[in-house]
């Protein structure tokens, strides 16, 4: 998948290059960049896609650029227990303040949010994660936390497979095999909840006089819990 997408881009660029040749002006290439951007020459080097490949490690939400290789739930369990469970819990329940793999079931998560009792501690792969390929991206890129980026591709696929199995992601049974074809087909339970910000959502006005006439304010003071200033920030008189 990734390769075909990349070559599609390549084709697009080739077409653009032809247009340039016809124009006979290499600088006429229409970019969306600032038209006032200064022209620079003689600085930097060109680089080939092959040379970039070891760094081209981003896997898109739809599976674009996912690598060859595969992993299984069984293999993932062994790696997880050895390298992940100490922080994320034997059953994905989290430990020592590190994230859970398994949160509340998505319906309960949604109901909690509506009831105003949602908390970060409710969140896991089964409610607050949109796409399986980006889970593979996170694990391969930045896990395990103490040795980031050290899992092989197959190991990363396996851990991805195991944590989705732990979180009871539909379709990820014990025999599920994770690879660049299967991951994009997974529908994460929380996927239906995601919306993109549409703009400012408050509309305060610049009232200057008598803004809350007759209103008694309900004022809550700082609680002592969480008041880290005690003993840390020196309370001083203003000089």
């Amino acid at each position: 998948m990734s390769k075909s997408k990349m070559s599609n881009w390549g084709l697009g660029l080739a077409a653009a290059a032809v247009a340039l040749t016809l124009n006979g002006n290499a600088f006429a290439f229409d970019t969306s960049a600032d038209k006032s951007a200064p022209k620079v020459s003689g600085v930097g080097m060109n680089i080939t896609d092959a040379a970039i490949k070891p760094w081209n490690i981003s896997y898109f939400y739809d599976g674009t650029n996912l690598p060859d290789g595969k992993g299984t739930v069984t293999a993932g369990e062994k790696i997880y227990n050895a390298q992940c469970a100490m922080c994320h819990g034997d059953f994905g329940e989290g430990a020592h303040g590190y994230p859970k793999m398994v949160g509340d079931p998505v319906d309960q998560f949604e109901a909690s949010a509506k009831a105003g009792v949602d908390a970060v501690s409710n969140r896991g792969l089964n409610n607050n994660w949109g796409n399986a390929p980006t889970l593979m991206d996170m694990i391969h890129r930045a896990m395990p936390f103490y040795a980031p980026g050290t899992l092989t591709t197959d190991e990363a696929y396996s851990v991805t497979c195991y944590v989705m199995n732990l979180a009871s992601i539909p379709g990820v049974g014990d025999d599920f095999v994770c690879d660049k074809t299967s991951l994009p087909k997974i529908v994460m339970p929380g996927a239906k909840l995601y919306v993109t910000n549409s703009g400012p959502d408050t509309d305060n006005t610049r009232c200057m006089k008598d803004c809350y006439k007759g209103t008694e304010f309900v004022v809550e003071k700082a609680a002592s819990i969480g008041d880290v200033s005690v003993g840390k920030v020196q309370k001083k008189d203003t000089q």
Binding site: S58, Y59, F60, Y61, D62, T64, P99, F109, E110, A111, A113, K114, G116, D118, R123, N128, W129, G130, N131, T134, L135, D137, M138, A142, G190, L193, Y194, V195, T196, N197
Partner: peptide
Amino acid sequence: KPLVTYQETKHYIEVLPNGMIRQFDL
């Protein structure tokens, strides 16, 4: 297209009172 990374799906999001998860509040 966006990557929709870990940071964009799990971390820098807002769970709204209607139960939805808001992304790309930039």
